[in-house]
Design a protein around this nucleic acid. Structure first.
Length: 267
DNA sequence: GTAGGATGCTAAC
DNA sequence: TTAGCCTCCTACG
């Protein structure tokens, strides 16, 4: 479930559970054992996120740098014996956080963390984000907007669900080149991402359907999207569009499955 | 039981 | 552009 909102929510929850506390850091699975030992029994200061990267800061300017990738999960719960392949467990006597299947899990210094963040575009979930930095690249780009939104060096935190949904919400054809996006459209996209992703952090899931378009408001039977949120197009290929009733289409774009409504999002 | 896919990214060609 | 990685879950026999 790792788009940017997941990591920011995780950062809040980890800070809540472990901030200011001395924690045990272990690697039940063993693949992180040596590095875990170096952090074990030290104090976690806080956890923060930038895009899809998570940073847990420990005393002594040491950081645990985590990227979940496609399949990684970080789960908080009671400190019961771990099940499955747990790469890292951070724990106090009251609570444990188990990390499974991360793409990246490493101990890093502050300068290494800063170097990572310097390569990331503005993150809609960070108050210090400058959308102008992303716009400067989008407005010159010939690549399709759907590819640009996924490029973490242009803007960070947006994944396959948010890209499909935000383009639908603004009726933008995903194949339109970045340079053909108007300043007003970009402003609307960014503003919308800020709001949608904040709500994603709050609810720990992605919902993008406007109140006036919910099944109840449209007088249709209730539905449940199988990934835990209410969406317009994501993973709804061949199903009818909630607005026009036409068929949602899917295609490969930027090595990921793109979903869109060719009627509502005309070229 | 097994294959294939998944909200991601990187290295190799 | 493609294969590969890491783990879990679902769909399909």
């Amino acid at each position: 479930v790792p788009e940017g909102h997941t990591l920011h929510r995780l950062a809040l929850d980890l800070t809540d559970a472990f901030g200011g506390r001395t924690v045990s850091v272990t690697s039940p699975q063993g693949r992180f054992a040596a590095s875990a030992t170096s952090l074990d029994q030290s104090r976690m200061i806080e956890a923060t996120a930038h895009g899809k990267h998570l940073f847990c800061e420990f005393d002594g300017e040491r950081f645990l740098h985590v990227h979940l990738g496609l399949i990684g999960k970080f789960q908080l719960g009671p400190p019961e014996p771990p099940w499955g392949e747990v790469r890292v467990r951070i724990a106090t006597p009251d609570v444990a956080a188990d990390l499974r299947g991360p793409q990246l899990c490493a101990v890093a210094t502050r300068s290494e963390i800063n170097a990572t963040m310097a390569e990331l575009g503005p993150d809609p979930l960070r108050p210090d984000a400058d959308p102008e930095l992303a716009w400067r690249r989008i407005r010159r780009a010939s690549r399709p907007i759907a590819a640009l939104l996924m490029d973490q060096t242009i803007l960070s935190g947006v994944g396959n669900v948010y890209r499909a949904e935000v383009l639908f919400r603004h009726r933008i054809d995903p194949y339109r080149a970045g340079k053909d996006i108007t300043p007003a459209e970009w402003h609307a996209i960014w503003t919308d991402l800020v709001a949608l992703m904040r709500e994603g952090v709050r609810n720990n899931r992605i919902d993008t359907v406007r109140p006036e378009h919910t099944p109840e408001a449209m007088g249709r039977p209730p539905r449940v999207d199988d990934h835990g949120g209410e969406v317009y197009v994501y993973r709804r290929a061949t199903l009818p569009c909630h607005l026009c009733g036409g068929e949602i289409r899917t295609a490969d774009l930027a090595a990921r499955n793109l979903f869109w409504c060719p009627t509502c999002q005309r070229p």
